[in-house]
Amino acid sequence: MKILLNNRVEEFDAGSLTVQQLLEIKKYSFRMRTVKVNGRYVPPAEYDKTIINDGDNVQVIYLMSGG
């Protein structure tokens, strides 16, 4: 499938992925981050049951401490 990940087209072998799987494949899981799929905020508790399908628009934002 092809998805839009942070405004770039990316291709994956799988037909669909959970948010949790995507974070692991892209090695995004090490840092605090926030995720939106097709404009909808995904709470961390739903990472393993939210499915990403072909054509979806996924935004992953790293949250770094400091302010």
């Binding site: 905020y41 770094m64 400091g66």
Partner: peptide, 27 residues
């Protein structure tokens, strides 16, 4: 960072339509 995630969840979930401007990475 945990507080940043917390307010993103709160505003995006319970205050839909209110824009939130987040800061990340300034050290």
């Amino acid at each position: 960072a945990e507080m940043k995630e917390m307010i993103i969840e709160a505003v995006q979930t319970d205050m839909s339509g209110v824009p939130l401007i987040v800061a990340s990475g300034l050290a």
